[in-house]
Design a protein around this nucleic acid. Structure first.
Length: 297
DNA sequence: GCCCAGGACCTAT
DNA sequence: ATAGGTCATGGG
């Protein structure tokens, strides 16, 4: 992976080469709900207290393999090195997870080939807790909508002024535990959060009060963190595993939702070979999920 | 109208 | 322990 810095009228952007990384696949993989497609092939993600714009350049040759494409990120070299490189988990070589699949497992081979370019992002723990409480018995489109709603009502507004044409451009950060703890159940229900409103209020207060410590969770191994997360209202086995995988980067967490359960029963009637992929089961889970959700096979 | 969407809680056995 | 009913909302 190599980077090059370029400047433009009011800042600089980074060209990243050789990442084996697909923005579109990450965006569609249902792990990062605040990563959205914009016009002209650009995406944006709001994370780490800021907004990043990014775009994948199509390879000029007829080879459309995204592994070798270039990614543009609207940020400084310093921010890329200290923030975004880690956020997108670009220091991890995913080939070691994907090249050792059992050749006889044609379904998993297909899933891994279909989703090559997906990575497990290193997202904010608190944001993952709330996001995946909202995700239960819900579809991705409405999950995104619900999250944007609580961001605009309880999160900090960030204003950007475009010097060229003086049009304002603003976005909202994900609310802090303290900010969300000011919400009432009735407020959230009025905003369309439904029966999950009570879960959000109680969990926000558990975290804001320190009853459950985010820092403590970050220092725990997977089994301990999972057990601790199950104490939160609205967090069951599946949501706890999503939080462990996406918010704590415990790659051995294997969330079993409706899609995964159906794949396991139809393609692995004798059991999924977890032992063969010990330590990174969750990476494969995400490839199976993406494949099942988007390939329409 | 019915069914489903990255399930969890509550209650009754 | 565990099985069944209930919970909001929006789209197909």
């Amino acid at each position: 992976m190599t980077t090059h810095t370029h400047s433009y009228n009011s800042g600089e952007y980074i060209r990243v080469d050789g990442t084996n990384f697909s923005i579109a696949q990450i965006s569609a993989s249902g792990q990062c709900f605040r990563m959205t497609e914009q016009e002209g092939g650009w995406f944006q993600v709001i994370a780490n207290g800021q907004r990043l714009r990014l775009k994948q350049e199509q390879p000029s040759t007829s080879n459309k393999c995204q592994k070798n494409s270039v990614i543009l990120m609207d940020c400084s070299e310093a921010d890329f090195q200290t923030i975004w490189k880690s956020y997108f988990d670009l220091n991890t070589d995913y080939r070691r997870f994907l090249t050792g699949i059992d050749p006889a497992d044609t379904y998993l081979q297909s899933a891994v080939a279909y989703g090559s370019g997906i990575r497990i992002l290193r997202q904010d723990l608190w944001e993952m807790i709330i996001s995946f409480i909202i995700s239960q018995q819900n579809n991705i489109r409405r999950i995104r909508k619900c999250i944007e709603t609580i961001c605009t009502h309880y999160g900090t507004k960030i204003d950007h002024i475009n010097d060229v044409n003086t049009c304002s451009d603003s976005f909202y950060l994900f609310p802090t535990p303290e900010q969300l703890a000011t919400a009432t159940e009735d407020e959230l229900r009025a905003l369309g959060l439904g029966y999950r409103s009570r879960y959000l209020v109680e969990t926000a207060r558990s975290i804001a009060s320190g009853e459950i410590s985010l820092d403590a969770l970050k220092s725990m191994d997977y089994p301990s963190a999972r057990t601790e997360l199950l104490k939160l209202c609205g967090v069951g086995a599946k949501v706890a595993d999503c939080i462990c995988l996406f918010g704590l980067h415990h790659l051995e967490a294997f969330p079993i939702d409706t899609h995964i359960r159906q794949v396991l029963t139809s393609h692995y009637p004798d059991g999924f070979p977890f032992e063969s992929y010990s330590g990174y089961e969750g990476v494969l889970q995400q490839y199976i999920f993406y494949y099942d959700l988007n390939s329409s096979h």
